[in-house]
Amino acid sequence: MAGKTTKHELKSNTVPAMVTVGPVALLLLFLVVAPLIFVAVMSFCETDEFYNVVYSFTAENYAKLVSPEYIKIYAQSLLIAFITTVLCVLIGYPFAYIIARTKSKKKQLLYMLVIIPFWTNSLIRIYGWRTFLGSSGWLNKLLVFLNITPEPLDLLYKTGTTVLGMVYCFIPFMVLPLYTAIEKLDTSLLEASGDLGAKPLNTLIEVILPLTSGGIFSGCIMVFIPCLGYFFVSNILGGGNTDMIGNLIERQFKSANNWPLGAALSIILIIVTLILVKIYQKLGGDMDSLGV
């Protein structure tokens, strides 16, 4: 009885859902849902000879997307995103492990090292890399000065350069979920494993990796998906040699001025993303750790 009354009181004292959730819902409606519908509608439109969008219904844009040169770029995007993700795991895991297992004050410092780059715009940081790697950049100057190479190396505008920039941009997105997962790991499990005769490598394979797989998984999703759309990294560091889906979209909206085609490309990217998130969910991934 008592429980029931409190429940009732609670309900009557609560601010109506319209007031609490309403404004947020309205905001989302205007800033997310409406533009998405707009993009979807536009992907079926045409352009006239002056590049103006003509509202009509045609599947031509989608038909264009299956041309071999586009498919090559999709494949390249997926490949670059995949390599980036793998490298992020390989570099990020040990780093996240060290931060999570450090007990002293150094932990704060290490954690800050991951966070601080966020304080500068990523575009500026990528330009920084271009300056650093350029033929008259510091790296080449140093290499020449140390007589390692007689002439400056051609480091820019290669697939590897794009991957480097991507890894650099996305490593915090990998480290943070990994850090959370490793932090949660019960130390006594590692002790138990060693106590039962497991060498450190066996403990890693049998206990640490399976118990932090959720973090690895979240990190991969957080890196792989945005990586497909990060056009400016391949623009600046890849110099147009390593185009990704993001670059195609950007070009349609800007230089090519073909908004309907760009919209169709965007829709494809959104669908790919949704499929990946769905797979993640199906495999038991935690949606909270993605921030959705």
């Binding site: 006594s188 499990l189 138990a192 494993s193 060693g194 106590d195 039962l196 049998e206 399976p210 118990l211």
Partner: peptide, 29 residues
């Protein structure tokens, strides 16, 4: 190292491996 010693420990918190079955837990050593 702990893994080289001929002693075993029963932990206060049990420290069972949550991702392994009872069979695999016991078989671990």
């Amino acid at each position: 190292e702990p893994f080289e010693r001929n002693v075993n420990t029963v932990f206060q918190t049990y420290a069972l491996f949550p991702h392994k079955t009872i069979f695999d837990n016991i078989a671990y050593g």
